[in-house]
Design a protein around this nucleic acid. Structure first.
Lengths: 333, 333
DNA sequence: ACGGCCTGTGCAAGCGCTATCATCGGGCAA
DNA sequence: TTGCCCGATGATAGCGCTTGCACAGGCCGT
């Protein structure tokens, strides 16, 4: 732990200590196997002795690879994406990438600020749960950062998309609901495109299969536990009660169940509830919640693979990766 | 949007375009009011025209100020800290700081990795919800980064602490429970120091006030919704049912309420429940959950103020900031 | 024995900024 | 008018690293 002089030890200090050039130390750090074993050992010891901590600002500047990725999500609290983000952060950290957190949900223009901040830091990739408006997409495309949109598969993604078909999900839920013999579904969706896609696909399939009328309600983004109260109150005011409520998130489903139970209804006997996302609560609620599982860990792996490939300068083999989904039938419907 | 040549426009490009030196452009960007108004206007136009995006890696390297702070939390899902983190990220972003997310909960050694990564990026501050072990604390102290521990007020914080007294919180909850006439409290705490402090303070006060026996149970960190099931099962097995359960988090309290209700008990009549943190669910649950509110926004503001002061080279006026807490009596107890 | 090659290492030129210092005109008090 | 100071700007030296290029030496095939 020699202090040299006041300042942090640099590559040169380590090089001096190990009796090699700075270049060799740099090589050892970034790709140990290109230096001779004996040299490597000396460098390792020198690093330990000096207490050297690499300066990734300098490294990033020189290599124009920041080893940092920006993750854009609307919110942190009760977010349906948290599982995915958590897996991703872990996966990336293990590969030496760090995550810069960008919250886009707090006010208009935030997304632009966050994207600009990410570009300013020369992130290797920007991972977003939502699309970018045209101008921003342009901005990103101009730079070297890889843009990855997750949880969604747009027609012509600006970069790479890793997600699943919300159409298929909506359709499959409709089939499931039909197969369970429900007649009067009520669809509660957050006012966003993804949820709307699932809703429309549900309705299309429902009609195609000869189902009857479908009622709907909207909630604000993000679709949260607390919305359950208002949604349920609205349902109670309907002349004909739905026999199943399809929700845009597990948290909303949970809130609805709590409300229904507080009102003396039994779930699923009096009213069934279906969630989305298979958040941890879904399997732990009473009753357990029927939902659609998205494999966040799988998304995380695909994201990492894409970033690695892109960093290595390879072309991406595909524009989008479908990780699918899985309907999990539990007690609530 | 002149493309110059393939690469991103740099300061020099902007300077050329505006007919000034790079130094002046830099000044304009970092501190507009030191350049003449007319010059500033020309530079503004040049930036827009060239589509210039500052390179914060280069800037950080030159100034040794990264404008980035690391936030260390155990988890993202159902975390009691999310409100605070969200406020903080917003507050920091508005001040030009970006947040690097560090998840420490996934396995041993992760904290060290995350801290080293943060130091590698020369963050201006490290904000952590937990303490650092001695070796890491040393490492951090050696560098220029400000270490801020939040949600806690240790005796002799390594850096700055912004939080509240868990002792006082435990004590106040005990008083509240007594004042409500409960006789047989059951304390469910996560196995961490903070929760333990509250528990011990609760017991001390309870005994001091002549309360009877207190029973306890432990859950894993993080204290989550799903733990409710096991905790409740254990409670049912007790010979004498507690009349109030004091939980380490609102999520756990929520899980417990759900379980209790599923078992046909009424909350709070048959069994009362108290949470911690005033997460959004606490006010939205049926029954609404009595809890202890921590002002995350306040913590965020204090954090930002400290970072600003530290970046400006000022000494911190104090070692710790007590933001207090507030017991919110609701329906569940 | 010799040229070609491959491995391991050093040299030095940047990467794009910031910050120190110097310079250059006024405006203004004496 | 003279000298001084101050506000605005330019020139320049790094910040700590990466990386292309050069080079030394050992190994091989012929």
């Amino acid at each position: 732990m020699s202090e040299n002089n006041g300042r942090n030890p640099t590559l040169d200090d380590v090089a001096l200590h190990a009796g090699v050039s700075a270049a060799t130390v740099s090589r050892y750090i970034n790709n140990p196997k290109v230096v001779a074993a004996a040299t490597g050992e000396r460098i390792r010891a020198a690093i330990a002795a000096t207490g050297y901590i690499p300066n990734l600002l300098a490294g990033g500047l020189a290599s124009s690879k920041s080893k940092m990725v920006a993750v854009l999500i609307p919110h942190l609290t009760d977010s349906i994406f948290n599982d995915t983000i958590e897996s991703m952060t872990g996966e990336l950290a293990a590969a030496g990438f760090n995550v810069m957190l960008g919250l886009t949900g707090t006010g208009i223009g935030r997304t632009e600020d966050v994207v600009r901040a990410a570009l300013s830091r020369r992130v290797d990739a920007i991972i977003s749960t939502g699309p970018l408006d045209a101008e921003l997409a342009d901005l990103v495309r101009r730079g070297p950062a890889l843009f990855i949109q997750i949880w969604e598969l747009p027609e012509d993604p600006p970069g790479l998309a890793i997600g699943f078909s919300h159409n298929a999900a909506g359709r499959d839920v409709a089939r499931f609901v039909l197969s369970r013999g429900y007649r009067r579904p009520h669809l509660v969706t957050a006012n966003g495109t993804r949820a709307a896609m699932r809703r429309d696909a549900f309705k299309a399939e429902w009609q195609a299969q000869g189902g009857g009328a479908v009622t709907e309600a909207q909630v604000d983004i993000p679709s949260r536990f607390g919305h359950g109260r208002r949604v349920f109150a609205d349902i109670r005011r309907m002349e004909l009660l739905p026999d199943v409520v399809v929700c845009g998130s597990d948290y909303l489903a949970q809130g609805l169940i709590v409300e229904a139970q507080a009102a003396g209804l039994r779930v699923p006997d009096d009213i069934a509830v279906i969630g989305f996302g298979n958040s941890s609560v879904a399997g732990e609620m009473r009753p357990t919640i029927t939902t659609v599982e998205i494999d966040g860990a799988r998304i995380a792996r695909e994201v990492l693979a894409a970033i690695r490939a892109h960093s290595a300068g390879e072309e991406l083999p595909q524009r989008s990766v479908d990780v699918g989904f899985r309907l999990i039938a539990r007690e609530s419907a």
